[in-house]
């Protein structure tokens, strides 16, 4: 069974007099250990789709089954639990807590999972070592470079062993070289067995993925897998 099953999802924003159709019926299946890029121009609905996949938002209609769990009708707190256990977010702007050091930032999802302190520290340290930041654990975000911050964010995304890593323009705030480093990190994680979904509008970034889904006007325009294309 696929990790993600999305069936005929729509998302409509009610703007008073007019309705805004962000998604107009999307079907998408994503399997275990896939590396997929979702592309599209701004306003295409790709952010909305990402929010729904990431359980930050719920669809207006349609079905969404994530790792066997039917999430399209869950309430806020149930979605929070799903986000905590099943999804690791990596954002364009890193979204680290500025007053907390790297270790605490990575520890945070584990706090919300209710792990005890020693286990949390152990896992968070492992995760930071995994992304090559074993020597930066006590640094606060403003003491780290952009690439290092994004690595902290990746470590945070990984720490709870989520089903999917969901990265939204993960290189958008990084220079090309650092961006490539992050993409190499994702590649490595994918090879280790992680399922990775990247949302981007850059072809250069999307080409790292094994499958590219293009969205336009709230619908899937194309869905190409690299292996087939090659």
């Amino acid at each position: 069974m696929n990790l993600i099953q999305i069936r005929n999802i729509t998302k409509v924003y009610d703007m008073g007099e007019e309705k805004l159709y962000a998604l107009r019926g999307v079907d998408l299946d994503i399997g275990q250990n896939e590396y997929i890029a979702i592309m599209g121009p701004s306003g295409s609905g790709k952010s909305t789709l990402m929010n729904i996949i990431g359980c930050l938002d719920t669809p207006t209609s349609g079905d969404y089954i994530l790792n066997g769990k039917d999430v399209h009708e869950m309430d806020d707190d149930e979605l929070a639990a799903i986000r905590n256990k099943e999804i690791g977010f990596v954002f364009q702007t890193f979204n680290l807590l500025p007053r907390s050091d790297a270790l605490h930032n990575v520890e945070l999802p584990l706090i919300y999972s209710g792990l005890n302190k020693s286990e949390r520290i152990k896992k968070a340290e492992e995760s930071l070592v995994n992304v090559g930041l074993g020597d930066r654990m006590k640094h606060k975000p403003n003491e780290l470079s952009g690439g290092q911050r994004q690595r902290v964010a990746v470590a945070r995304a990984l720490v709870n062993n989520p089903s999917i890593i969901l990265a939204d323009e993960p290189t958008g705030n990084l220079d090309t070289r650092t961006g490539e480093e992050i993409m190499a990190l994702f590649k490595e994680l994918n090879l280790k067995g992680n399922t990775i979904i990247i949302v981007t509008h850059e072809e250069d970034i999307a080409k790292h993925a094994n499958r590219i889904v293009k969205i336009r006007d709230g619908k899937i325009e194309s869905d190409t897998s690299k292996k087939k294309a090659e």
Partner: peptide, 10 residues
């Protein structure tokens, strides 16, 4: 927002 995204409940 960050806290909620990584699993903080209401």
């Amino acid at each position: 927002g960050i806290r909620k995204a990584i699993g903080a409940k209401r």
